[in-house]
Simulated assay, not measured.
Amino acid sequence: MPAPPPAAPPPSATSAKTPLLELREVSRTHRSGVAEVHALRAVSLCVYPGELVAVMGPSGSGKSTLLTLAGGLDTASSGEVVIEGRDIAALSPKEMAALRRRSVGYVFQDYNLIPALTAAENIALPRELDGVSTRKARREAMAALAEMKLTEVASRFPDEMSGGQQQRVAIARALIGNRRLVLADEPTGALDSETGEAILALLRTRCQQGAAGVMVTHEPRHAAWADRVVFVRDGSIVDQTLHAGADSLLSGGTEAVQ
């Protein structure tokens, strides 16, 4: 089983870099009848190239909301979401779609595979939509499946695969191409322990190659793969390195990083 990486260097080590993802005082408010529900409250967060950040917190605390806003799948009520130096609120729908195809890989908790496409076709689709030839996109898809040790499902449709296989196909789709921002919502939720650790190692490697990663997880042992942990409670976050260990985060023994 792969060993988790060492704890992250202090924040000063990344201060000279430009964030690949930046949330600036981002809030998200939903209406429920006449009441307002504050899913996120003025959250600020920077994620740098080469860094994997874990997001933890109780159910309903805003973890998934943070991730969908970071990927441009939802719109902030206030504040700014900046990807690769671009305020995504200023992008047209066409520009935002292109940014997601080229730069953002998103692993959905419910997989979000297209039922009418095979595993290889699901993985290749973002590349084909971005103008890559079908032959090249399928070749890249097969390489991604091989990396997941999943080539035997290339021609299967989602309903012909197990939940764990669908999860790995979804991860392969998120990593194909040169996506510089990888967002994963419980990426190991449907996987056995050994396969889950292998997927975390793969995410970690992609970050070491220059991507920025944000991973929602409820497992301290999975968060131990990250450079930093963002703990979300009632829509607000506490940012911390892993020097103290993820277990201390859950027990309330956090040390905020300003």
Rank of each mutant, 00 (worst) to 15 (best):
M1Q: 14
S12T: 15
A13M: 03
S15E: 15
L20G: 00
E22W: 04
S27Q: 08
H30L: 15
H30R: 11
H30P: 02
H30V: 14
H30Q: 11
A35E: 11
A35P: 00
E36M: 08
A42L: 04
A42C: 09
G50L: 09
M56I: 01
G62R: 00
S64D: 05
G71M: 04
G71N: 04
G72Q: 07
D74L: 01
D74H: 01
T75F: 07
S77L: 10
S78I: 00
V81C: 02
V82W: 07
E84G: 11
D87P: 02
L91C: 09
A97P: 08
A97V: 05
L99Y: 04
V104G: 00
G105F: 06
V107W: 06
F108M: 13
L113N: 12
I114Y: 10
P115S: 08
L117T: 10
L117V: 07
T118F: 07
T118A: 12
A119Y: 05
A120S: 14
N122T: 09
I123G: 03
A124S: 11
R127H: 00
L129C: 11
D130N: 14
G131F: 02
S133F: 02
R138N: 02
R139N: 10
M142A: 14
A143Q: 13
A144G: 10
L145E: 06
M148I: 04
L150I: 10
E160F: 06
G164L: 13
Q165L: 06
Q167H: 08
R168W: 09
G177P: 09
R179W: 03
R180V: 07
L183V: 09
E186T: 05
G189W: 08
L200W: 03
T205E: 15
T205G: 01
M215C: 13
V216L: 02
T217Y: 03
E219M: 12
A223C: 05
A226T: 08
D227F: 05
F231S: 02
V232L: 15
R233M: 12
R233I: 11
V238A: 12
G245P: 00
D247A: 14
S248N: 15
L249P: 00
